[in-house]
């Protein structure tokens, strides 16, 4: 009996592997991007959801099992997943997805990172000396990453190379058009002073020209405390802000506390695909983000 179960599950695993590329994305944005580029040619799942902080999950058994069967891992890199991804790769017993192999794709290696300090001192909090890893919040990065990812898919599945190239071309065209639309739509956001919860928003601010005046976290990765918020409130008197930005996976308490006392608006942004009911794919993600930002300024 046991032998039969093992035999059939092996057969099943072998079957699905042939039917499509088995892709495990570390975050929903990369799952969405892979889906755009591969369509039915890939079976894509995401290790984290929009409700989870990609820096703070564990290499739990179900993820190890999924990594075991993956042909391709699509992750952010730049130490964002440092607390679980290396373990996932090592525990998977899967040679294809090890660092340096074609089956491991790091999006952050494709773009120029902001806040690259080069030196690390944890007195500065949980800093990423290699740069800020939250790159997808600037859609221009999706173009660069998308082109590289399409090449990688073609490398892993050469039989369908033409399809990946064509889908990428289509994606580049649609995304470029959307970026142009968003940029003209967001002219009014340029120079708006904002408070952020974690440096998740550096790329969005960089793209839209938002001015980040403060961070709810006293140091990156260190949760705000009552005293740190109080001193922040003091600082806002000298440098007033109009919005507080936070992701759905972050607690609303610090943002609401500060918003109520500073008399400004706290906005929950989707951060990634699935972060709000409207953010169903990479396009609606930015539609919804801009709508929320503009709505909050009215």
């Amino acid at each position: 009996m046991l032998f039969r179960i093992v035999f059939f599950s092996l057969l099943l695993a072998a079957n699905t592997a042939h039917a499509a590329l088995n892709v495990l994305a570390c975050e929903p944005e990369w799952a969405a991007l892979t889906q755009e580029l591969a369509g039915d040619l890939a079976r894509v799942t995401s290790a984290t959801t929009a409700k989870q902080d990609p820096h703070h999950i564990e290499a739990r058994p179900s993820l190890i099992a999924r990594a075991r069967n993956a042909d391709l891992l699509v992750c952010t890199g730049a130490e964002l997943e440092v607390g679980w991804l290396p373990l996932l790769q090592r525990e998977s017993g899967n040679a294809r997805i090890q660092p340096g192999r074609a089956g491991f794709f790091e999006a952050s290696a494709q773009v120029r990172l902001l806040e690259k300090s080069g030196h690390a001192d944890r007195a500065q909090g949980d800093v990423h000396p290699g740069g800020n890893p939250h790159i997808h919040a600037d859609p221009r990065n999706l173009l660069t990453v998308g082109a590289a990812l399409a090449r990688r898919l073609a490398e892993l599945d050469p039989a369908n190379a033409a399809i990946y190239a064509a889908r990428n071309q289509d994606f580049q065209r649609r995304m470029s058009a959307a970026i142009a639309r968003w940029e003209s739509d967001a002219v009014g956001l340029r120079g708006v002073p904002v408070v952020v919860h974690h440096r998740s928003w550096s790329y969005l601010a960089d793209w839209l020209g938002l001015k980040v005046v403060a961070d709810l976290e006293p140091k990156p990765g260190i949760e705000p405390s009552v005293s740190s918020l109080a001193s922040l409130l003091d600082g806002l008197k000298a440098r007033p802000a109009r919005l507080i930005l936070r992701a759905g996976y972050q607690s609303s308490k610090p943002a609401d506390w500060l918003a109520a006392r500073a008399g400004i608006v706290a906005v929950e942004l989707p951060y990634t695909v699935g972060g709000s009911a409207a953010a169903k794919d990479l396009f609606s993600l930015f539609d919804d983000t801009l709508a929320r930002l503009k709505g909050a300024l009215k």
Binding site: A78, G118, G130, G131, N141
Partner: peptide
């Protein structure tokens, strides 16, 4: 300058680490 310019260049993420 770096923050003002759009991110276009591609460089490996690891070169900053000594």
């Amino acid at each position: 300058q770096a923050t003002a310019a759009p991110a276009v260049a591609t460089s490996p993420a690891k070169d900053a680490r000594d």
